[in-house]
Amino acid sequence: MLDLTADPADLLATIVDIESVSGNERQLADAVEAALRGCPHLDVLRDGDAVVARTHLGRPSRVAIAGHLDTVPVKNNLPSRRESGRIYGRGACDMKGGVAVALGLAASLTEPRHDITWIFYDHEEVAGDLNGLGRLARTRPELLEADFAVLMEPTSARVEGGCQGTSRFEITTTGTTAHSGRAWLGHNAIHDAAPILQRLAAYEPRTVVVDGLEYREGLNATWISGGVALNTIPDRCVVTVNFRFAPDRDEADARAHVAEVFAGYDLHYTDFSPAARPGLHLPAAQEFLAAVGGEPGPKYGWTDVARFAALGVPAVNYGPADAGLAHTDNEFCPIDELYTCRDALAAWLASRPREAQLAVPELVDERSLSG
């Protein structure tokens, strides 16, 4: 069982210790559902291994706060450990720190000034067509309706706007097999991949400012496969390319750009996810920025803010831990950032900032004890 009234660091350690590699989220989803059903102010729904909890207080606005439950595979980094003011363990950074903050607030904020939809979903770390938030968007879009959304991705407790788009495509070269001792009788498909790699090596990615934030693009080979046997000239080679593009490009522009870079080649797309513009000029985002403070930055990589944006819901990334540690063997979440995010979100969501302080009077003592 999860104790949602526990210190955020203790709650995070408990959540980390419930292994939830993508496809194996059920135990954690069960624990989250059971804990939230113990909160009388929340209406709780379950969809697969996604858990949605909502207030229905008749507020004039609704916000959504979301986080994914799954992690990449474990690599000798469970159970969790606490050391030097940090919680270490698989998922501590990406993104169980954010989930712990959200769960604690879902339980404690019984009278927020916005109605709130809390979303804890599955299958974020795998193919996009399996994504639990995407499933909700397709089958239960009414559950994602909101005036503003916060995705609790790791951002080192600062607001990161929008996200890059991402596409993956394959370029295949073909040849003729032959014994490598008689190579002149065949045609080497792997050698024909050299011009593709040369174009990638020579490519100069853009840096572009979108809505005041600077985004960097990237076009890179991320996988190459080919070969029949160690003594055989290969008749096929496949180069997989990943394009990370800035949010000023839509799908048509992104596809047109890579088609120009690889003119003369057929591109087979295996994945495409659109970017999301920051939208920090919008009133809801401005209010959130004013409440949490700090200087906003861009989100490098793709996140589910793009799914909210596609539904017309402005969204930002905001959560504890450094995204640069995500998926690493030694990932961790700083305990002080758990408190920073909890304080900021509580102040933003409470009826008045003073109420947020009264709801968690022990915060100063917890910080001093966390060391």
Rank of each mutant, 00 (worst) to 15 (best):
Gly212Ala: 05
Gly212Asp: 07
Leu213Gln: 03
Glu214Gly: 00
Glu214Cys: 10
Tyr215Ala: 04
Tyr215His: 12
Arg216Trp: 00
Arg216Val: 09
Gly218His: 00
Asn220Ser: 12
Ala221Val: 06
Thr222His: 11
Thr222Tyr: 06
Ile224Phe: 12
Ile224Arg: 05
Gly227Cys: 11
Ala229Lys: 09
Leu230Ile: 04
Ile233Val: 15
Ile233Leu: 04
Pro234Val: 11
Pro234Gly: 11
Val238Trp: 00
Val241Arg: 02
Phe243Pro: 06
Phe245Asn: 07
Ala246Ser: 15
Ala246Ile: 11
Ala246Met: 10
Asp248Trp: 09
Arg249His: 15
Arg249Pro: 01
Asp250Trp: 01
Glu251Asp: 14
Glu251Ser: 09
Ala254Asp: 09
Arg255Ser: 05
Ala256Gln: 13
His257Gln: 13
His257Met: 10
Val258Trp: 06
Ala259Gly: 11
Ala259Trp: 01
Ala259Leu: 00
Val261Thr: 14
Val261Leu: 15
Phe262Pro: 10
Ala263Gln: 14
Ala263Gly: 09
Gly264Tyr: 05
Tyr265Gly: 04
His268Arg: 15
Tyr269Asn: 08
Thr270Met: 02
Asp271Phe: 03
Asp271His: 12
Phe272Arg: 08
Ser273Phe: 04
Pro274Asn: 14
Arg277Ile: 05
Leu280Asp: 06
His281Asn: 11
Glu287Gly: 14
Phe288Ser: 02
Leu289Arg: 04
Ala290Met: 06
Ala290Gly: 12
Ala291Thr: 12
Val292Asn: 03
Gly293His: 02
Gly293Ser: 06
Gly294Ser: 13
Gly294Ala: 13
Glu295Leu: 02
Glu295Lys: 10
Pro296Lys: 06
Pro298Asp: 05
Pro298Tyr: 04
Trp302Cys: 08
Thr303Leu: 13
Thr303Lys: 07
Val305Arg: 02
Val305Pro: 03
Val305Asn: 07
Ala306Asp: 15
Ala306Gln: 14
Arg307His: 03
Ala309Leu: 11
Leu311Val: 01
Gly312Ile: 14
Pro314Lys: 13
Pro314Glu: 09
Ala315His: 06
Ala315Asn: 04
Asn317Ser: 14
Tyr318Asp: 09
Gly319Asn: 02
Ala326Asp: 07
His327Lys: 07
His327Ser: 04
Thr328Asp: 01
Cys333Arg: 02
Ile335Pro: 01
